[in-house]
Design a binder for these strands. Structure first.
Lengths: 338, 338
DNA sequence: TTGTATGCGTTATCAG
DNA sequence: CTGATAACGCATACAA
């Protein structure tokens, strides 16, 4: 009833286990032995134990993926990219959320590292609080790649996107539409992504002779729709002359839109809204959300490929920056005055 | 530079490896030895290799989670529940999507089973095509639990929700509002979930003396917003007298709403819309989507707990059915005539 | 080309 | 209470 092992196969085929092992790994085996072993394997329905194989090989056969919360909208896209790349290799994916049930708890990932359960680690969207995590990884000589990190280290690889360029693109888009007074509502103040996006937006506006009033710059508690909704109620309390709002990500923008529409604001007629990331949800709400697309899937694949390179051939830090692309939908239009 | 092993610890502490092993597993060790070993472990920064441990124990230390696509809206909630439950145990989660890059390919999960990489398997939202998968699992004596499956088998555990009851609740809600002519647009025809929801809806309406016209029952290609949008364009082509549409899930409903709003239809003024699942997105669109909530997180946790019970103590099939709860938001209101 | 012996890092059995 | 020693299932020098 128990699963057959390599020695069962060897015995039944009348050869040594090492011969079967060679057969399995494509080394030299005589024609005749090859045939016999193949038959027995089929007959017994044998297939090697990944665990034992990895132990012997000194590898783990797994890479780890850590993320703040697997519920984050943009994460699923990154995940899909990683899965695609992984499906071609003999390596499995272990997943862990750092924040479950409301509290931050990285113990699972720390265990991965300490118990050497993984050959490499990907941290998606890592923040300052993840620093001890990748420090532990570095110390354990565990190849690591960070996706869109707030902080980094010379010993880890990084995959990020050209947030500043994206901000510039948004600025030009809005300027082309005729907007003069735009606002920015980012994620948490310490978020580097938001900072870069804001910088790009500001610079892009300046290029067009426009000025981003510091009074019109705000930061939300986090990147969730709820935070965007909170910003909206705040924003709508007092009359404002801004004609467009750029948000730090799509989640915030969507949260804002809900509340704004609920209060009777017309988007984009009364006010234009722009997000970042191009999560799928932005495409199936009405009005569709104009946003800046990160090639999330491709970034996930790249992170994974880079990780394998680092595993096979440890080397210095590499940083790859992906270009962003403006996706124009229905949430932006010329300002009311125009 | 290499990580310390148990024998390094034993040597340095002047004891046998077996003593260290006992120490690690909480078996009897003398005070003095305990102290010495503890010191050495700290000093060396030792921690046991999960891989070797599992090999020796004959377990894998991993459970597998397979899903059609990790991009599905409702899946992230299930995942969160599973992760919560798993974080309390010394077991990791391996994840795989069955459908990547547009084509169905379960080879990863089959490999998990054949290579005995996992102690148990959870298949989320399994369809007919997943049957070979859990058949393989059954054959390999691998404890398996299915979440909201279309098909099942007496050898696997099942976690599902009371879809029929949810349908009845929707029917009563709409009847209370005064709707007479409602339509139903489900997922794929073979989806058991949709079938049960439809049955509940029909029965619930009958209870109130209302009739669900077969002409007003349709099935979409899949459960995506795109399919909902396609249904909407079809639906809007010709004038209709239905005052409420119930969709097989939230994705379809959201897709419909986008197109309907785009075409100038007012929701819920002109037509009421109801979904199923209560995905987060339904709460942050405007109008908010009235839906039937599955306790997805709790279902995920339960699936995980059930899996561990099955691993520790293999037994016959168990089916647990979760109650559904109507979540009323802004997409439903009395019909125009009222 | 094939078999023997040894190692991978732990746990468990069984004497002492 | 503790220390050898045999598993766990496979890979790989090395010798034949």
């Amino acid at each position: 009833m128990k699963k057959p092992t390599i020695s069962n196969v060897a015995e039944r085929a009348g050869v040594a286990v090492s011969t079967v092992s060679r057969y399995l790994n494509g080394h030299y085996v005589s024609k005749s032995a090859k045939a016999r072993i193949g038959d027995v394997i089929l007959e017994l329905g044998y297939s090697p134990s990944a665990n034992a194989r990895n132990l012997s090989l000194g590898r783990k056969g797994c890479v780890g993926l850590a993320v703040d919360s697997s519920l984050y909208l943009w994460f699923t896209q990154i995940l899909a990219g990683i899965e695609e790349e992984l499906s071609r290799r003999d390596t499995s994916l272990m997943l862990a959320s750092l924040e479950l049930e409301g509290r931050y708890d990285p113990h699972i990932v720390h265990n991965w590292i300490k118990q050497r359960r993984i050959d490499g680690l990907i941290i998606a969207n890592s923040h300052r609080r993840e620093r001890p995590l990748f420090q532990a990884a570095i110390e354990a000589q565990l190849p690591t790649v960070l996706v869109s990190p707030d902080e980094t280290s010379p010993h880890v690889h990084v995959v990020r996107s050209d947030n500043r360029g994206g901000g510039v693109a948004v600025a030009h888009h809005l300027a082309n539409l005729g907007h003069k007074r735009v606002a920015f509502a980012g994620g948490p103040v310490h978020s580097v992504d938001s900072k870069h996006r804001l910088n790009g937006l500001r610079d892009g506006l300046e290029e067009r002779g426009l000025h981003l009033d510091p009074k019109h710059v705000a930061f939300c508690d986090d990147y969730t729709p709820e935070a965007g909704a909170a910003y909206a109620t705040q924003f709508l309390k007092k009359p404002s002359d801004v004609t467009a709002i750029v948000f730090g990500n799509d989640g915030l923008a969507l949260g804002f839109m809900r509340v704004a529409l609920q209060r009777g604001l017309r988007i984009p007629h009364d006010i234009s809204v722009v997000g970042f990331d191009n999560v799928p949800e932005g495409a199936f709400v009405w009005p569709g959300l104009t946003t800046v697309a990160q090639p999330l899937r491709e970034m996930g694949r790249n992170a994974c490929r880079r990780l394998f390179e680092a595993i096979e051939n440890p080397t210095g830090q590499q940083v790859v920056v992906f270009p962003l692309e403006l996706v124009i939908r229905e949430s932006t239009a010329p300002p009311p005055s125009a």
